[in-house]
Simulated assay, not measured.
Amino acid sequence: MLRYWVGLNMVEGVGPIKLRQRLERGDSLESLCAEFKAPLDLADQQITAAEKNNIHILQLADPKYPEILKQIHDPPQVLYLRGELVKGETAVAIVGTRRASAYGLECARRLASGLAGCGLTVVSGLAMGIDAAAHEGALAAGGRTIAVLGGGVDAPTPYCNANLAVEISKSGAVLSEYPLGQKPRTWSFPRRNRIVSGLCRAVIVVEGGEKSGALITARMAMEQGREVMAVPGRIDSELSRGPHSLIKDGAKLVETIDDVLVELNMSPIKTEASTRPPAVSQLTLEEERILVLLGREPKHLDVLAADLSVPGYTLSALLLSLEMKKAVQQLPGQYYVVL
């Protein structure tokens, strides 16, 4: 039976809605596979590869399939899962731009850490920027996070976040509706976003333009009856246009995790402990000097090396140590910022 579902899932143009309609009309899976020329030989290969790589393939009737995802208009007929899903878990999505500012990264990381510390699961798309920061924040708090991919779970993209995907799968889950080995396509990310919002009770947007993928996710969340929230930003920043537009349209303005918890009818946290970044380990004198000079605004490696009067290779080693201690964050282009 599973091979029929997997085979039909590999046929372009045969989506969840069309398949559901035909099944409701009385067509059998076997007849649909024959009609649409489903590649059952490839489906068998997919199932074998999944078993070898500890990847679960869930179809809609599987007991492990998320109940909340079944409620959307077009739930995936097949889900590839690396890791584990928790039945009945309450999840919140945190999404935003790939080209995030230091402020946006810090907001995403702190919100995710605080929410995960309250027992909520943080969902995002593993992209660079806000998505990665949200996953990292949840992991830093020892919580659960789910990454929903636009390609196969066996080769997560972007490749720079492949190690992050491995860490996520150890305590959370990496999900996709796309077959193993499939690379992301332009259209696969917007379709992926309906799963991100569909898994959650709420979607929080942290930075993004008015036509960004994060706003696509927010619109899908509205259509699915989910709560939509947004973190405000600088009024002169292009990255604030998306969240500010959502707030103008009635989205909940989020400043702390309490704003999220209240909207979900959960008890607010009376202490700020859960919103604080992870404690920094004991620092050396050289590391303390770096933090003093670095500050909250991104600074390039070469500029920092000149300020400290140390060779670039020495500074790189010190910055790596600070990253491991969760004290600094490396941004694209060899820029660094204090967490």
Rank of each mutant, 00 (worst) to 15 (best):
T271A: 08
Q330C: 12
S28M: 01
P277Q: 08
E272I: 13
A221G: 02
A108Q: 08
T157D: 06
N193S: 02
A140W: 07
D258A: 15
N161R: 10
V337E: 09
S169D: 09
V95K: 00
S124Y: 01
L42R: 13
M1A: 14
G119Y: 05
G15I: 09
E177P: 05
N9I: 05
K52Q: 11
L115D: 08
L319K: 01
S101R: 05
G312D: 12
L199R: 00
E167M: 12
R289P: 08
E167T: 15
V14G: 04
L126K: 02
A214W: 00
L199F: 05
V95R: 01
S176Y: 03
L81P: 03
N161M: 08
E167Y: 15
R219D: 11
I168C: 04
R22P: 10
E223S: 11
T314K: 14
P16A: 14
R22G: 13
G208L: 04
G208V: 07
L19G: 04
E227L: 13
L126M: 04
G114D: 00
S245P: 02
L322P: 06
C200P: 08
T90D: 07
S169R: 05
G114L: 10
A43R: 01
V6S: 09
I72E: 03
M266S: 08
R109E: 04
E67T: 08
D258V: 09
G198N: 12
G181P: 02
A93P: 03
V231Y: 11
H73L: 15
M324F: 14
S274E: 13
G142I: 09
D236T: 04
R192L: 03
C200S: 09
T256W: 06
G143K: 08
P268G: 09
R20Q: 14
L81R: 12
Y335H: 08
L2K: 10
Q46Y: 10
D259K: 05
G125D: 00
N161W: 09
V206P: 04
S281E: 15
R241A: 12
I94Q: 02
L239D: 00
E223A: 13
G137P: 05
D62G: 03
Y65R: 06
Y103H: 11
V92R: 02
V95W: 06
I17G: 03
L261A: 11
D154M: 01
L40H: 07
C107H: 07
R234C: 06
P184N: 13
T121W: 11
R82E: 10
L331E: 01
H135L: 05
E323V: 08
T97E: 03
L331G: 01
Q59Y: 15
L315I: 04
L29D: 03
P311R: 11
A132M: 08
S197Y: 06
